[in-house]
């Protein structure tokens, strides 16, 4: 059994679909967090999921914008740790707006020629989890 020590303050992201952890690492820009320790556990055994990934992040608890996790997979469990204890479990929901995480692929969109523009998507259909580009309203299909 692989052992990774507990964390004093930060997050444990549990029930990540196996294989998705590196993508989440990139989305949350965890590589840019200075002085923070990140442990990624891949293909851990899970009674519920068969296999899952887990990410442990030792960081101040206001250091990460977790809204984007709701977009990636709202089944992820977010445990918030303070003083070595789980103090909260956050429920995820689909964010109404996503900024600078995904890019519009429509070649006719203004963002295709003006690259300094923020890439903004809004939640057009919560039931079908459809996001559309704020500028051209093209559906994002690359999730």
């Amino acid at each position: 059994m692989l052992n990774i020590s507990g964390i004093h303050e930060g997050y444990v992201l549990d029930h990540i679909k196996a294989g998705m952890s590196m993508k989440i690492y990139d989305y949350l820009k965890l590589g840019d967090l200075e002085g923070c320790t990140v442990a990624i556990i891949m293909n851990a055994k899970s009674n519920k999921m068969g296999a899952k990934d887990i990410i442990k992040i030792e960081c101040p608890i206001d250091a990460i914008d977790l809204d984007i996790l709701g977009y990636i997979d709202h089944n992820i469990t977010v445990n918030i740790i303070r003083d070595d204890e789980i103090v909260d479990k956050k429920r995820l929901s689909l964010p109404k707006e996503i900024k600078n995480v995904i890019k519009c692929k429509n070649p006719r969109c203004i963002t295709s020629i003006e690259q300094e523009l923020d890439q903004v998507f809004f939640l057009a259909d919560p039931d079908r989890e459809i996001y559309r580009c704020r500028y051209c309203e093209e559906k994002y299909s690359g999730k």
């Binding site: 969109c109 203004i110 003006e114 523009l117 500028y135 051209c136 309203e137 093209e138």
Partner: peptide, 22 residues
């Protein structure tokens, strides 16, 4: 380009009318 008038409206000091964007 689609959305260009919206970009303009976000930075404009005057009303912008979309007269066709792609």
């Amino acid at each position: 380009k689609e959305g260009a008038p919206l970009v303009a409206s976000n930075h404009s000091g005057i009303p912008v009318i979309n007269a066709g964007d792609g």
